[in-house]
């Protein structure tokens, strides 16, 4: 408007100002590990990582302390097999003993993968930035399945043997001679209780 100002600019100003406030609320509230938190990087070496992804959480003693920053293959000197090195970013306040155990854990049976660090006892020897931990390999679902199958087969075999009366337990359960012997023994004892106190002359 050329002839006289209106309250136009005020209205637009109010609108934009509150819009930007909402934007900053979102920006500040969203995002879990703040990018401006200071921290350091440690790496963990695995043979198998079960599909862990960039950005997966890192938990130390069950508390979220960081996230996975980098995943790469490497070949340690003098070894034939490729290994996986996972670089984790953890907050400065976290002190990880060098003898901590590390493995890839799963939330629930099929849930999100994350890096679990179980603190060790050696707090005199704390992990520094860039140092690495040797990870224990998680079990692949397939391996768990195979193991379960093997256990089931073994159990099955045992049961069959027990049923057939083979082996100690089988004989105990299915061989009646033991029962007969015991019965005869007790009956004999009832008839001649003195036998309990009878000392064989041979032992003398």
């Amino acid at each position: 408007m050329i002839f006289g100002k209106t309250k136009l600019e005020l209205k637009v100003g109010v609108f934009v100002f509150f819009g930007l406030i909402i934007l900053s609320i979102f920006v500040l509230s969203v995002g879990k590990v703040k990018t401006w938190t200071s921290g350091y990087r440690v790496s963990c070496v695995f043979n198998f990582v079960n599909g862990i992804k960039f950005g997966a959480p890192v938990r130390f003693a069950g508390v979220d302390v960081g996230e996975v920053k980098h995943i790469e293959f490497f070949r340690p000197e003098g070894e034939q097999k490729e290994k996986v090195r996972i670089t984790c970013f953890v907050k400065n306040s976290t002190k990880i003993p060098a003898d901590s155990a590390v493995w890839v854990n799963t939330l629930g049976l099929l849930g999100e993968k994350y890096i679990e660090i179980m603190p060790g006892k050696d707090y005199s020897n704390i992990l520094l930035a860039g140092q690495s931990l040797q990870g224990s390999d998680p079990l692949a679902m397939q391996e768990i399945g195979e193991m379960a199958k093997k256990i089931a087969t073994d159990l099955d075999d045992t049961l069959v043997k027990i049923k057939k009366g083979e082996g100690t337990v089988g004989k105990l359960l299915y061989d009646e001679s033991l029962y007969d012997n015991l019965n005869a023994f007790i009956e004999d004892l009832k008839k001649n209780p003195w036998k309990l106190f009878y000392k064989s002359s041979e032992k003398k």
Partner: peptide
């Protein structure tokens, strides 16, 4: 203005 309006709508 549409992004700003969308922020309002979201919240």
């Amino acid at each position: 203005m549409l992004p700003l309006l969308t922020l309002y709508a979201d919240i």
